[in-house]
Amino acid sequence: MRTNKLIIRTPEGICLAQQLAGPVTRFLAVAIDLAGICVISGLLAQILLLTAIVNPDLALAARTVCYFIVTVGYSIILEWFWRGQTLGKRVLKIRVVDAEGLRLRPAQIVIRNLLRLVDLLPAFYAVGGICSTLSPKFQRLGDFAANTVVIYAVPEKIPDLELLFSGTLNSLRSYSHLAAQLRKSISPGEARLALEAVVRRDGLEANSRLELFRQLADHLHPMAPFPEESLAGLTDEQYVRNIVDLIYRPIVP
């Protein structure tokens, strides 16, 4: 089944999900890398031109070899040193990983990059693009042979949830008995839904955002009948945010 997630089930029963990078994002990363290869090759050619004063034949030979090494070695070297990332992948925040969640080995990096030669055929990544589009894990042939996938890299820092709630005066907090009732009556699924809506609100289109929070507010109102005066002037979004605050931060220091 096609999914945009790489799901790894560990022997301990933990299910780890990583979002897979699609063909378009990967193609853009390749475009950036091609530009990088051109810049590096151009710089090397200029440097090697200086040696032409001493021996023109040697300078041209060195340029041919360097261009070949840069073309073939660029992705191999960068993916090895940057743990699955090239310049393009860094810019687009994607990363090559082992398809089974194991450590990425040098052999895998070499194979996926050497097989790029077939993925490039007949032109403009046609084979690779078609394979990637049809593959359940967006794998091109090189990825398939090397047992790798490309995922979105996650920022490696603990998210600061304080930013989610800070700076807001929660008018519902003074009704502690109603807050307790709310926490008792709301299901984990409903609480998660409200939390995700608050977290993702900035990514929503304006009308969808209004509609989503209206529906959520309508759903949450009966669970804890807060007095009208406490809700005066609150938009649906502020109401839901305050509810989430009450649920996930029962005690404020």
Partner: peptide, 17 residues
């Protein structure tokens, strides 16, 4: 199970991976 704050879940999944 109880509080799927997406950023925190992603962070922990990344760490565990």
């Amino acid at each position: 199970t109880f509080a799927a704050e997406p950023n925190l879940v992603r962070y922990l999944e990344s760490l565990l991976t």
